[in-house]
Write a protein that binds this DNA or RNA. Sequence first.
DNA 1: GCGACAG
DNA 2: ATCTTGTCGC
Length: 236
Amino acid sequence: MVSLTAPYVSGFLAFREVPFLLELVQQLREKEPGLMPQVLLVDGNGVLHHRGFGVACHLGVLTDLPCVGVAKKLLQVDGLENNALHKEKIRLLQTRGDSFPLLGDSGTVLGMPTGQPSPSLSQALRSHDRSTRPLYISVGHRMSLEAAVRLTCCCCRFRIPEPVRQADISSREHIRKSLGLPGPRTLRSPKAQRPVACPKRDSGESSGGAPSPQRQADRTTPGGRRSTAQHQVGQR
DNA sequence: GCGACAG
DNA sequence: ATCTTGTCGC
């Protein structure tokens, strides 16, 4: 269990979560090196970021592990917009694995002018046949966008890649068992709501024939927090 | 008032 | 992220 102190500010997610993710990787490295994953699926963006360097890039550089940014919402940056045109493109993704490149209008890659058609470093991906909502995959560290998209898709039993999904589920369970037991909403009684604690405000992989390369994700802060005035409770 | 808003 | 309301499939 960890206690997050830095507030969540869009564009600065890494400053809030990376210290804890890094510590986990380091502990794994010294205590269970055999379980060290070959790649990390990070709940957040890689280069699809205001400054081209999201949490997946931070963690990748600090751990020297290949990282993939897996976001559930489009970070509208560099001219990218979740507008009608974008939604139409999403609608055209027919089956799992279908994707399209997200190309900003800056004409730069990682902030460096190319003077050439900029290669996309992120894509919208339909990860499952049964889910219309896409995943926004972006290069984090030491992996091509193509490999990142394929790997992510191969990890999807449902919309969210299993490593991220399982981390999410277990972390929420851990929080539920420690702090009160809000438990998942039953959806039974329409009027069963807990009192509000806080009034307002605060308010490179498949080498060899050995399949099953990656595993382990990182995924951090679940939801639990929001009790005192700002933020606490992390997990794992 | 309205749009944005990775988690 | 969290919260609501509503729909659909198993």
